[in-house]
């Protein structure tokens, strides 16, 4: 069975093309691009909510996109136990929908951050199966609001349920910070309780091709397919 997937495009999404290429190149299966005003979603294994500035990030990052027509279908897809991945703005949208806990607030230095970062796996799930426990991945980030925040109670739940998928870490060499945006416990990505929905700030779709600086982003799709 070939792996089927879809990418949702909102007005202001700007990583939708990147996500489509990422899926086409790595899954070799059917890939759909769905406009936010659609009211049906094809039956696919994975849906990606891509990065960008959906609706200009007006009101709050992800807030307006979370009220789009297609979102009902996206929630159904997740409730069906199929995979849903929100990258960057997609992560923000997932917290606004309420499929993921917590919120993404402004980076600690109150500035946009576009650079390479390093992450490692925290708790095992189907999105990071192919990644070794000690493995450090190099993947770019590009966000203004990537500072993950939640209250202590929620944090304990995330830990107890092993919902933390990725955390920022120090790279191999001297010039990289450990927790680039000030996230609580350096959290870079979390899942829902059932672990079929993942939100992450780093952009794996910018780190998979031979010409990219790193190919570590492949591991997420490889984990899902394996």
């Amino acid at each position: 069975m070939s792996f089927k997937s879809a990418v949702i495009t909102f007005p202001g999404s700007n990583c939708d093309r990147d996500a489509l290429c990422y899926l086409k190149d790595l899954t070799k299966g059917e890939v759909h691009n769905i406009w936010h005003e659609e009211t049906s979603l094809p039956k696919v294994d994975l849906v990606i909510l891509p990065g960008g500035f959906s609706f200009g990030d007006y009101l709050r990052s992800g807030a307006m996109a979370s009220k789009s027509k297609i979102i009902d279908e996206v929630v159904k897809h997740a409730n069906d136990n199929r995979y849903l991945l929100g990258i960057c703005n997609g992560f923000q949208i997932l917290t606004e929908i309420g499929l993921l806990e917590g919120a993404l607030i402004r980076n600690k230095k109150l500035k946009f951050l576009g650079k390479n970062c390093f992450i490692k796996k925290k708790f095992k799930n189907n999105f990071n199966l192919s990644i070794k426990d000690s493995q450090i991945l190099q993947i770019p980030v590009a966000h203004n609001e990537g500072n993950f925040y939640c209250d202590t109670e929620t944090l304990n739940l995330l830990k107890n349920n092993e919902q933390i998928a990725f955390e920022y870490c120090k790279g191999e060499f001297s010039n990289f910070e450990e927790n680039i945006n000030g996230s609580i416990e350096a959290i870079a990505g979390i899942t829902n309780k059932k672990k079929n929905v993942l939100g992450m700030m780093p952009h794996p779709e910018r780190a998979y091709s031979d010409f990219h600086q790193s190919q570590d982003g492949r591991l997420i799709i490889e984990s899902l397919i394996s």
Partner: peptide, 14 residues
């Protein structure tokens, strides 16, 4: 300066 710019969006930056 540069870190405040997104330099890898579009996935074709070398």
């Amino acid at each position: 300066v540069f870190d405040q710019y997104d330099s890898t969006v579009m996935g074709d930056t070398i």
